[in-house]
Design a protein around this nucleic acid. Structure first.
Length: 359
DNA sequence: AAGCCGGGGTA
DNA sequence: TACCCAGGCTT
């Protein structure tokens, strides 16, 4: 069983807070105390690097500076601003939650664990991060950085991908919070994990905790944290049609749930085993859009890897041979420049860019 | 408990 | 290549 003394906790807190005051980065969301703005930053930062988030957060705050602005914004416009960040359910959940804060909390982000955790898209980490950073509430905020720092500092060999381990790290992280310093302390743990106690080749010589780090004392810092291995992406063949009608091409909206929910893309679908890409297009397009299609020529190939699957996409130029263009809520006909106005997955952005290059 | 859900940076 | 990133939701 893990033993951490009160004196040890005090020492860790002192060292980390001093180090943080002298070394913290000047990040845009550290210049505000607005809980809404900090909340948005935490959602963007889920599984996403700081450097990636910065320009997105700046644009988002310019367009939606308040809870009310985001609550009343059109969903597709918000999705467009999120385009390229990935994990698009994050922004759908965020807007749902912000609308609830607008309607039920008078626009004020709740400051209790129970209330904020009830909001969609707010899990244990985000709840703790917003409460501690924005309101200085002494609750833990355990992300990947904190797992790594604490597993090394106290030489904890539990598999951090297991829920039981998460609870253990959370209680430890809560125990370590110096009185009145929840905001700075939680951020200092994450900052150390991001800049010093990094996954590979941790910079122990410049670490403020080196003298008290149990893993360093045993030379085990490279072996922690322990986490289960994940499966490789599953390969999937995708057939895509660039369907022309004059100077316009067809884009269709994906379902509002599942992969890339609500985004626009060129029509097509998954190639069944044994079928070719062309056969798939000949089957899917008329079936879904009620018009015969003629495949004219191969246009481009796109490879795109997600966290759990790998698209092998082949696109073909096509034309409609029927007498009318399909028209529906989930279908739009756009010229190549208008393609930039709708939120598209990166794989299809590559096709759109290739089309714009033709002009 | 395991799977789903993006995209990009790094060694 | 493989890992991992200020994770959360669904089944």
């Amino acid at each position: 069983m893990l033993e951490v003394s009160y004196q040890e906790a005090v020492e860790v807190g002192r060292r980390l807070l001093r180090w943080y005051m002298e070394n913290k980065r000047d990040l845009p969301w550290r210049r505000t105390k607005d809980p809404y703005k900090i909340w948005v930053s935490e959602v963007m930062l889920q599984q996403t690097r700081v450097e990636t988030v910065i320009p997105y957060w700046n644009r988002f705050m310019e367009r939606y500076p308040t809870v009310e602005a985001l609550a009343t914004a059109p969903e597709e416009e918000v999705l467009k601003l999120w385009e390229g960040l990935g994990y698009y359910s994050r922004v759908r959940n965020l807007q749902t939650a912000v609308r609830e804060v607008h309607a039920n909390y008078g626009g004020r982000v709740p400051d209790t664990l129970e209330e904020i955790s009830s909001l969609s898209g707010v899990g244990p980490y985000t709840a703790g991060a917003v409460l501690s950073i924005a309101y200085n509430v002494p609750v833990p905020a355990v992300d990947g950085n904190v797992f790594r720092v604490l597993s090394r500092l106290f030489l904890i060999e539990d598999d951090v991908s297991k829920p039981a381990a998460r609870r253990k790290f959370e209680s430890l992280a809560e125990f370590l919070i110096p009185p009145g310093e929840a905001s700075n302390f939680n951020q200092s743990l994450m900052e150390l994990g991001a800049k010093v106690c990094i996954p590979k080749y941790p910079r122990c010589p410049e670490c403020p905790l080196q003298e008290v780090c149990r893993a360093h004392a045993e030379g085990m810092q490279e072996d922690l944290p322990v986490k289960g291995k994940k499966k490789p992406p599953k390969p999937i063949d995708i057939a895509t049609g660039i369907v022309w009608n004059g100077d316009k091409v067809m884009v269709v909206r994906r379902p509002l749930t599942g992969l890339l929910a609500g985004m626009w893309e060129f029509p097509g679908g998954e190639v069944a085993p044994g079928d070719t890409h062309q056969e798939t297009l000949q089957r899917i397009l008329p079936e879904k859009y009620a018009q015969p299609i003629e495949i004219q020529s191969h246009f481009a190939d796109v490879q795109h890897t997600f966290s759990h699957l790998h698209w092998n996409l082949k696109a073909f130029s096509c034309s409609i041979t029927g007498d009318s263009c399909p028209d529906a809520e989930a279908i739009r006909w756009l010229n190549v420049w208008q393609l930039s106005d709708v939120p598209m997955p990166v794989a299809h952005q590559k096709l759109a860019k290739a089309l714009q290059g033709l002009v």
